[in-house]
Amino acid sequence: MSEKGKIAKQMKEIVELFMSEPQLKAHMLMAIEEHMKESDLVFGRLANLHHDMFSKQEYPFIYIAAAVELIVLAGDLLDDVVDQDRLKDDAITVHTAIGFLLLGQQVIAHLHIADEKKLKALSYVTSCLLQSVHGQQTDVACNVQTEAECIKMVEKKSGSLVAMVCVIGALLAGKEDIAAIETYARYIGIAAQIDNDLDALYNWDKKADIQAKKKSLPILYMLESKHDNLWKQYFNNEIDYDEMYVQKEKALQQMEQEGAIYYAKVMSQIYKEKAWQEIEKLDVDDKYKSALKTMIL
């Protein structure tokens, strides 16, 4: 069985073990199946890798990876509620998300690992989730006006989550100095979010970012342009979403012509390269460095 398959299997077993309400359990198992279709479970795999990288003993690392993926899946579901993406029953989705969030933390608390390590890991999880919530709210409120503000928001929203999954694996393995891991993990998160924002520009029917008027780097670029464009008209409320949607091909063409798409791709690559530079400094076997680089390409 693949690593992804093992993690998913463990996630389902955790739900079966701890959840007793039939409808909620069924919904949670279904959510894991849907998650499997859309995700490579890279967060759990990153937790695995960092635990393996620094561990001197055999711990149930698949259990750690499953816990991490449950927490991340909780965040994805709550995002869907906020963005009103693909949802039919908000109530059970919220309950499912809360269930996943609590389950992930409960799994960590019950690991057969020294209490001191678990306490540090759980404290770090809470800290990172709080940072992510702050970033998410800034994003939803569209409170960014500059590139610097946007990067700061993205670092909180996504960088903190990647830091969480990487550092938790290291902490549970007994790693004390996590500064370098935090640094490259946040860079990875920023690059990944920029890539996701670019993807959202080409998938208006699947993602609600444009309709919600979220300000990503390429959109900020267009709003700062000296030329009139559809993005300025839309964000200045001169045209509504329906009018913008009809002209989406022209809007994307304007982005490409102005260089906004290229700019965002360059920014993503810059943060990937920053991450690679920090990874190279790690005092670990080269096989772990190669695995990390492969995951963030």
Rank of each mutant, 00 (worst) to 15 (best):
residue 276 W to A: 15
residue 116 E to H: 06
residue 285 D to Y: 02
residue 206 K to Q: 14
residue 275 A to E: 01
residue 294 T to F: 15
residue 87 L to V: 05
residue 252 L to W: 03
residue 206 K to I: 08
residue 178 I to N: 05
residue 47 A to L: 01
residue 31 A to V: 06
residue 57 Q to N: 15
residue 27 H to T: 12
residue 210 I to K: 01
residue 291 A to E: 10
residue 69 E to S: 05
residue 72 V to T: 08
residue 32 I to Y: 05
residue 65 A to W: 02
residue 119 L to S: 13
residue 119 L to H: 14
residue 180 A to L: 15
residue 80 D to T: 06
residue 257 Q to F: 07
residue 228 D to C: 10
residue 50 H to A: 00
residue 215 K to E: 00
residue 175 K to Y: 02
residue 87 L to D: 07
residue 5 G to P: 11
residue 220 L to I: 00
residue 286 D to N: 10
residue 188 I to P: 11
residue 118 K to P: 12
residue 20 S to T: 15
residue 103 L to K: 06
residue 28 M to G: 03
residue 196 N to G: 04
residue 168 I to H: 09
residue 62 I to F: 14
residue 126 T to S: 15
residue 196 N to Q: 09
residue 207 K to H: 10
residue 249 E to V: 04
residue 121 A to Q: 11
residue 295 M to F: 10
residue 41 L to V: 10
residue 99 G to S: 03
residue 42 V to I: 15
residue 176 E to L: 08
residue 280 E to P: 09
residue 201 L to F: 00
residue 25 K to Y: 01
residue 181 I to L: 11
residue 138 T to G: 14
residue 124 Y to P: 13
residue 278 E to D: 11
residue 46 L to A: 06
residue 6 K to Q: 12
residue 272 K to W: 11
residue 71 I to V: 09
residue 115 D to A: 11
residue 9 K to E: 15
residue 9 K to V: 12
residue 180 A to N: 13
residue 258 E to H: 02
residue 102 L to H: 13
residue 288 Y to D: 06
residue 28 M to I: 02
residue 203 N to E: 15
residue 52 D to I: 07
residue 135 G to C: 04
residue 81 V to H: 03
residue 78 L to F: 07
residue 174 G to L: 00
residue 282 L to D: 06
residue 75 G to D: 01
residue 192 A to S: 14
residue 290 S to H: 15
residue 271 Y to I: 04
residue 233 Q to P: 03
residue 118 K to H: 10
residue 93 T to L: 11
residue 39 S to T: 07
residue 218 P to H: 02
residue 52 D to Y: 06
residue 283 D to M: 06
residue 23 Q to G: 12
residue 207 K to Y: 10
residue 68 V to F: 04
residue 132 S to E: 07
residue 169 G to A: 02
residue 240 D to E: 09
residue 34 E to C: 05
residue 192 A to C: 10
residue 76 D to V: 07
residue 206 K to H: 08
residue 123 S to K: 02
residue 103 L to F: 12
residue 125 V to E: 02
residue 105 Q to P: 09
residue 86 R to D: 15
residue 134 H to V: 09
residue 294 T to S: 12
